[in-house]
Design a protein around this nucleic acid. Sequence first.
DNA 1: CTGAAAGCGCTTACAG
DNA 2: CTGAAAGCGCTTACAG
Lengths: 340, 340
Amino acid sequence: MKVKATSIDIAHLAGVSQATVSRALRGSPLVNEETRRRIQAAAEQLNYKLDKNASNLRRMHSGTLALLLFEDPTADESHINPFFLSMLGSITRACAQRGYDLLISFQQFSHDWHADFADSNKADGIILLGYGDYLTHRDKLEKLVAQRTCFVRWGAVLPDQPGVSIGCDNFRGGQAVAGHLLERGCRRIAFLGDASSHYPEFFGRYRGYVDALEQAGVAIDPALQENAESTEHSGYEAMRSLIAREVGFDAVFAASDLIAIGAMRALGDHGLRVPQDVALAGFDDIATASFVNPPLTTVLQDTRQAGEVLVESLLGLIRGEAVESEVLPVKLMVRGSSLR
Amino acid sequence: MKVKATSIDIAHLAGVSQATVSRALRGSPLVNEETRRRIQAAAEQLNYKLDKNASNLRRMHSGTLALLLFEDPTADESHINPFFLSMLGSITRACAQRGYDLLISFQQFSHDWHADFADSNKADGIILLGYGDYLTHRDKLEKLVAQRTCFVRWGAVLPDQPGVSIGCDNFRGGQAVAGHLLERGCRRIAFLGDASSHYPEFFGRYRGYVDALEQAGVAIDPALQENAESTEHSGYEAMRSLIAREVGFDAVFAASDLIAIGAMRALGDHGLRVPQDVALAGFDDIATASFVNPPLTTVLQDTRQAGEVLVESLLGLIRGEAVESEVLPVKLMVRGSSLR
DNA sequence: CTGAAAGCGCTTACAG
DNA sequence: CTGAAAGCGCTTACAG
């Protein structure tokens, strides 16, 4: 095993006290420049690294954030939504920029997850990420608030929610997609995805869609809505069952790109061409969206910005500041799948 | 801020010494059952959580593993290879099962990454994951070995490598794909992907392909190999340039699924049908592989097993055991894209 | 089976 | 600007 140098070793080598070593290496302005240089040289010579455990213990914080990534229990492990993985990337980067480490953990919504990380001082705060039935875990969020755990979640921003939420503007995104499809002359626009308060993000997109139709004077036909969760498989099945119901439609707005990609395949299997027979749009703008054939019209959620805002908000909470929930803008990406 | 209960608070409440609290909660067999129950009750009442920083400091270990996920600098951040993300998931799970936390960090191969995590006692060992030019970072691996840092890497298993590597059987995988394509009557099989010692995994697949062709008495035509890195975009471009070269081919073996998916689109754009005109196969079996049209023939790397082996090997290293590099078996998944 | 005590490697008032 | 000292919350020989 390697022998680790401690601040005492540096102190001996540099001929100063251990306290001065600590100050010098932590960048305290109290230290003489020449002394600091001597200490730095000694530290390099001995390949010294700060012991984070000791430092954190003493400072009563961890310099670490925890990310709990929730998976729908129905989805198998290889099907983690690429959108969340992209968020993971940007959160990691945002943490690194601010000198924080990121601990990650996959969780099932159904499990008894609590905030072990925060409780055991391994993390100063936690980020909650993932789709799932909002109503079933709402009480857990309330518990976190009661325990005064610092946390932010990615999700729908609703009026009476526990804690702070960061989410994209699902309503406007839904409006934009439906508005665009209406503009292209579509009148029978199906919606693929859950549309209930259990899934507030999809519901927000649905409400935007309803709003756009109403504004255009197009009647809402409940038969055009079909439940789906955010997987290709679910999108495929939902599309099949919509086709089987023979309700007639000229466009499909899928609540996520994964659903849209599954739907695209189902349409193809039934001999329906996109966009000639059916215009199609999704939501998220995952990498694959621009790569399917035809390229998928969708709504861009800026994951880079989202990661920044999540981390910045959480850090604010940790500093004891008042932090508000925030709705991030979205952007309609028009591509071939809706251009008929 | 919340007031945290310490083991001293529990000791007071339960009427024992702090040392006994520590023993009881750590499951030491030395503690009387009744005492333990009393302590446990007190701990629950005060919502006590072990302070990991203190515990780790005292025990001189961290109970944490770090995962360094390398990205090719050319790839943009949203295009993290789904295969690695799937690995990430299985590594996380394998860690959790063993009571270890996982710290993650995205890195550029080009950067000066070192093993800060391990050095600063934040992690007991590190896992290295990602494609990239092997030759350019080989010296860094050697430095890790010299420093006696515990690490394992996912990648090609080569004879003279520094440290321990876990990888799949790229050679056999390549053999299996090429063998299968030969069996379907293909004779002009193109290879899309780098085939040099800079990218040992792709190179292993290539050598397997060469071996299968030679065994079948089919001549190797260097014109049929086209460089590509593991992205859809790169696959698309490689396919286009192969088509442009007009060398004639009846099958394509892409060194990864991402490359294959890009190639599939390029073939479509040029009016070539898969599999009727060109049989196509990939490598990795990412989720999307079974979802493209036609479903992609590919080689399954068992990420669940890989994650387990990576974590188990690293833990072995940490315990000071002798750990060998390991080659994991692969499995050919025959799907529509190669059945002509 | 239990307690008193030392100590992990830092940070930070306190004193000079 | 620097040092001596206390203490963060645990774990673990040592003694009984």
